[in-house]
């Protein structure tokens, strides 16, 4: 499998960015780009496992919006009893993680136990979560209580030694994910399941449980991403997390994971996420093209990154 394609694309983007704007490589800009990559990135790490095991999850964007809505509602409701403080933040985080696991289990149950196509199941749950958050917000926006938000804010904006928390959490998730994928039995089982589930079954791999675990893990990571997301703007609405699922899937594929399953690499996904974020960032920082064409530029670069990968693969 080619290593070069996505890295090359990333390097080219960084060179272009640095050449076009002096502030591109400033600590502030790098921090911004990495922090905002963290949501999609954390989700995309989970998505890497799901896709590697031969699955797909279209519901993650809606799921994130729904979990954010649940967090805000629960924290606002608990405010009179718990007051502003660490316990209420922990409560919110717990809600996010539990909701994420539950949502992942639901997807996993419908796909592995009832044997319904992953595409259909998650297309369905995507609509369900999106509607639920719209309903919870009464069509508007759910906002975290102002004092709570002020207290919670550092979880997105502060960090250690100038590195913000989302970046730190993202890095930890990536390192654990990479180890799990390339060095652990679970990763091997995911790849075997996605490569050929019959072979996996005949090799004593519990195919159903492996798939189930990938969806639960993805749900959990959506919860983690939401924990980082809520303090940024302190709100959730029907437009939260729109198209995150496609961005996450695109990042996974750009990174070299095979869409039909059987092979995945977490570090590649990170490259994919960074490529997607940098395109937006560079387009904002420069006046190269009409903003109407931003989507087209993004599309061209996604396809190019995958072609580079293919070319290098054919040679190697």
């Amino acid at each position: 499998m080619s290593v070069l394609g996505p890295i090359l694309a990333l390097v080219i983007l960084i060179v272009i960015g640095a050449a076009l704007n002096g502030n591109f490589l400033s600590a502030g800009n790098i921090n911004n780009v990495l922090s905002r990559s963290a949501f999609i990135g954390i989700i995309a790490v989970g998505m890497t496992f799901v896709i590697t095991a031969g699955g797909l999850d279209l519901s993650v964007g809606s799921m994130a919006a729904f979990i954010a809505g649940m967090m805000i509602l629960v924290m606002n409701a608990a405010l009179p009893t718990l007051g502003v403080g660490i316990p209420i933040i922990l409560l919110g985080m717990l809600v996010a993680l539990i909701a994420g696991i539950a949502a992942g289990m639901l997807n996993g149950f419908l796909i592995t136990t009832l044997g319904i196509e992953a595409f259909i199941v998650t297309l369905g749950t995507m609509g369900i979560y999106r509607s639920l958050v719209t309903w919870l917000a009464n069509g508007g926006t759910l906002s975290l209580d102002f004092d709570l938000r002020t207290f919670y804010r550092p979880v997105y904006f502060d960090g250690i030694l100038g590195v913000s928390w989302p970046i730190i959490v993202f890095a930890v998730v990536v390192i654990l994910g990479e180890i799990l994928m390339s060095r652990a039995r679970f990763g091997r089982h995911c790849a075997a399941t996605g490569s050929n589930e019959h072979v996996a079954h005949y090799s004593s791999v519990n195919v159903g449980r492996t798939r189930m675990l990938t969806y639960i893990m993805l749900g959990l990571l959506v919860g983690v991403a939401t924990i980082m997301y809520v303090p940024r703007l302190g709100s959730a609405s029907a437009s939260t997390g729109v198209l995150w699922e496609l961005e996450a899937i695109a990042a996974v594929i750009i990174g070299g994971t095979v869409l039909k399953g059987g092979f995945g690499r977490v570090w590649g996904t990170v490259i994919g996420v960074l490529i997607l974020s940098l395109i937006d960032n560079i387009l904002n920082l420069t006046d190269l093209v009409s903003p109407y064409l931003n989507g087209a530029i993004q599309g061209v670069i996604i396809v190019l990154a995958v072609i580079l990968q293919r070319e290098a693969k054919a040679k190697g």
Binding site: A191, A192, S195, N196, H198, V199, Y202, G262, F263
Partner: peptide
């Protein structure tokens, strides 16, 4: 179809 992962190496 059931014994070996054809798109993987021998070690795996």
């Amino acid at each position: 179809l059931r014994g070996l992962l054809l798109d993987k190496g021998m070690r795996v």
